[in-house]
């Protein structure tokens, strides 16, 4: 349902994506791993048009992703995003954050949306926080609200951009738990992450990216347990055994 064909992207002189070709099937969980600065986040940001790309083509459900076209709204309502730094709206309550998109972008009936919002908050374990404001919550709680906000759009896929990187270690588990449940329920997910344990247990497929190209890809077990490429081996060694 998400197709990338030979995608190139430069920031000034610096080419961060050097021809990415990949696809994500419906119901699949794809983890993107690799060193920082390798272009992982840029791929996600190109998929929902937060970033433009210079060459190649990206499509979502057959719809070309073009951030300057009116159709980008349709892409974004089908593909939600969860950010590293949560990016909740601090001036609105938790429940208002969750229902903002369905209410004001998709213009769904209020009563129905509020009901769905409460159900989603219960799903991520934060039903009692509906009327709190985001700054009153811990990072882990905020990220779970952000996931509920993404789900409220009833998307066909969710993109996660290092969702646990800004969290204190003891809060990572709650967020990963919610994500694992989503994966079990059949949500299509693309996850940029440094959590190799999560990738190994949950991902159907892992892409290892370095220097703007896909160095290696395959099932989570093959890429993470028996990496073929020396760069993958080197990266995994440093991540898994930092000392």
């Amino acid at each position: 349902m998400i197709e990338l064909t030979d995608v190139h992207k430069s920031f000034g002189q610096n080419e961060v994506l050097k021809g990415i070709t990949a696809s994500v099937q419906k119901g699949e969980v794809v983890c993107i791993v690799g060193p920082s600065g390798s272009g992982k986040s840029t791929i996600l940001r190109c998929i929902n048009g937060l970033e433009s790309y210079d060459r190649g083509e990206i499509s979502v459900e057959g719809l070309k992703v073009d951030r300057d076209a009116a159709s980008i709204v349709k892409v974004r309502t089908q593909v939600s995003m969860v950010f590293q730094r949560f990016n909740l709206f601090p001036h609105r309550t938790v429940l208002e954050n969750v229902v903002e998109g369905p209410l004001y972008v998709k213009k769904e009936p209020r009563a129905q949306v509020l009901e769905r919002g409460r159900v989603l908050l219960a799903q991520v374990g934060l039903a009692e926080k509906a009327d709190a404001h985001p700054p009153q919550l811990s990072g882990g709680q905020q990220q779970r609200v952000a996931i509920a906000r993404a789900l409220a759009m009833q998307p066909k896929a969710i993109l996660f951009d290092e969702p646990t990187s800004a969290l204190d270690p003891e809060l990572v588990g709650d967020v990963l738990g919610v994500m694992r449940k989503l994966a079990d329920d059949g949500m299509t997910m693309v996850v940029v992450t440094h959590e190799m344990g999560f990738a190994r247990d949950v991902a159907d497929r892992v892409l290892f990216i370095d220097g703007g190209v896909i160095v290696e890809q395959g099932s989570a077990k093959s890429v993470l347990n028996q990496p073929q490429h020396p760069r993958t081996q080197d990266f995994l060694r440093r991540v898994l055994h930092p000392l």
Binding site: T77, F83, M153
Partner: peptide, 8 residues
């Protein structure tokens, strides 16, 4: 970006 990502 968060606003854009929900289609605003």
């Amino acid at each position: 970006e968060a606003a854009q990502s929900i289609g605003m």
